[in-house]
Design a protein around this nucleic acid. Structure first.
Length: 430
DNA sequence: TCTGGGGTCCTAGGACCC
DNA sequence: TCTGGGGTCCTAGGACCC
């Protein structure tokens, strides 16, 4: 048996927890660069604002409907997430943190009333952290997701599902006829693993609801859509195919990419940006004790704007390394190779590929110039930046430290890092 | 003016091997 | 006229997730 716990409108909820005056108002959190809506309060949803909507298309609602928009504050969300996950872990013996706002809990061996227990945990998270969440319980992960979906819909839209399923829903404890009924009332597109493409194809094939998918011919499903969807079907039938993953393996690739605050039209700022991206990626790389042997760098114009299009990338091989200097050098070499003048570049990025654990690196014959990672130097670099703040010490091609780069992303509505920065602690007045 | 960022897995097809 | 069989590895592209 599994539970899926996930925070309601998580980013917005984290913001509201520190600004209670926003409760009950239409609030959205915007992606980096204040680009798109990535989290909405129920009130914002009710205004018809879609997930992923470009901000400039809905910003008029700020005046007409009191919509409040905030820039993403990932330091805050990450910290609130850690706290929520610690409490969620009390639900059962095993936990898989699946994303910043949701986790699966393995419930094997749990006795007693699971729903009651889940409601208790939910209450504790709400009281201690201020973030509301919903919990779905079922025999497989895909069903737990579905169960969670039911719990959320039942809370948000009373009447869409029976009221007692609101906030916490246990499909595993229901008679089959009730489960069938819920599946008939749920669109196939809501299933975990069915996205927009396959969802549309299924609809055309006459599969409208979750119930239709459960009963669809397995052979046809497999030959037309592949083994992934077959697995999803089995999971919906109650056969566990996807295990709980308590300690995810290290990443196989690490990316750092950004859209620019303003378009770039020359190579100098592009080199600055790519230096910053490679530096960020290198820190993540060392954080998981890996080395990279390929560096991919890309740059492109906006796909939404008129004008000449540009989108190029190149992969630069390096000797397996975790040294920021080597990774930055490779990224810059890549930039010089792909760069062409005459374009308004909107986005660029660096990806580290072909990662391996740093203790398993193949040695080399000394046929070439010596090439040594300065492990101690990197350790010192990370420690200094940890203590004095990101960018306190870095690579010179990143440009002057602390200077505002005109390519840097816009974040015009960011709230303080209430819980992760001493200088930004909230102040309570009696 | 203005459209995010970071991942994973699967499959098909090509290159190559014997 | 006529052109095998079986396998691996790599890559690009497509689909999905949050």
């Amino acid at each position: 048996m599994y539970a899926l716990l996930d925070g309601n409108n998580f980013y917005v909820a984290a913001e509201v927890a520190f600004r209670p005056s926003l409760a009950g108002k239409p609030v959205v959190v915007l992606s980096n660069n204040d680009g798109c809506v990535i989290s909405r309060s129920n009130e914002a949803r009710a205004l018809g604002i879609k997930m992923g909507a470009p901000w400039f298309r809905v910003s008029h609602l700020a005046d007409s409907a009191g919509l409040v928009a905030l820039s993403a504050n990932f330091a805050l969300y990450g910290d609130i997430s850690d706290r929520m996950m610690s409490l969620a872990a009390g639900l059962g013996p095993t936990q898989e943190i699946y994303s910043i706002d949701e986790c699966f809990i393995g419930l094997d061996g749990m006795r007693g009333d699971l729903v009651e227990r889940a409601r208790k945990i939910r209450g504790r998270i709400l009281q201690w952290i201020g973030v509301p969440c919903c919990i779905g319980i079922a025999p497989t992960k895909t069903l737990a997701k579905l169960s969670n979906h039911v719990a959320k819909r039942a809370e948000r839209k009373p009447g869409s599902y029976p009221a007692h399923l609101s906030q916490v829903c246990n499909l595993g404890a229901m008679p089959k006829s009730d489960v069938d009924e819920l599946m008939q009332a749920t669109a196939v597109g809501e299933v975990w693993g069915v996205g927009s493409r396959i969802g549309a194809q299924l609809q055309l094939a006459g599969v409208q609801t979750v119930h239709d998918l459960v009963r669809y011919d397995t052979g046809t499903l497999r030959s037309r859509w592949g083994v992934v969807l077959e697995r999803t079907q089995r999971e919906l039938q109650g056969v566990p195919c996807i295990e709980l993953d308590e300690s995810p393996a290290p990443r196989k690739e690490i990316a750092s990419t950004r859209s620019f605050g303003r378009p770039i039209t020359s190579i100098e700022p592009l080199i600055e940006a790519v230096t910053a991206f490679a530096t960020t990626a290198a820190v993540k790389l060392r954080g998981q004790a890996s080395v990279a042997s390929q560096v991919l760098v890309f740059a492109r114009t906006s796909p939404f704007r008129e004008g000449p299009r540009f989108s190029r990338s190149c992969v630069v091989p390096v000797r397996p390394t975790r040294d920021t200097r080597h990774l930055v050098a490779a990224a810059i070499a890549g930039v010089r190779k792909i760069y062409a003048p005459g374009y308004a570049l909107a986005k660029a990025g660096v990806m580290l590929l072909d990662l391996q654990p740093d203790d398993l690196v193949q040695g080399e014959l000394g046929l070439d110039e010596p090439h040594e990672d300065q492990t101690q130097l990197m350790t010192a670099l990370d420690a200094i930046n940890q203590r004095y703040g990101r960018g306190a010490i870095g690579i010179a091609s990143a440009g002057p430290a602390g200077a505002t780069k005109h390519w840097q992303m816009r974040q015009e509505r960011k709230t303080p890092a209430y819980t992760t920065n001493w200088a930004e602690l909230p102040i309570v007045r009696a």
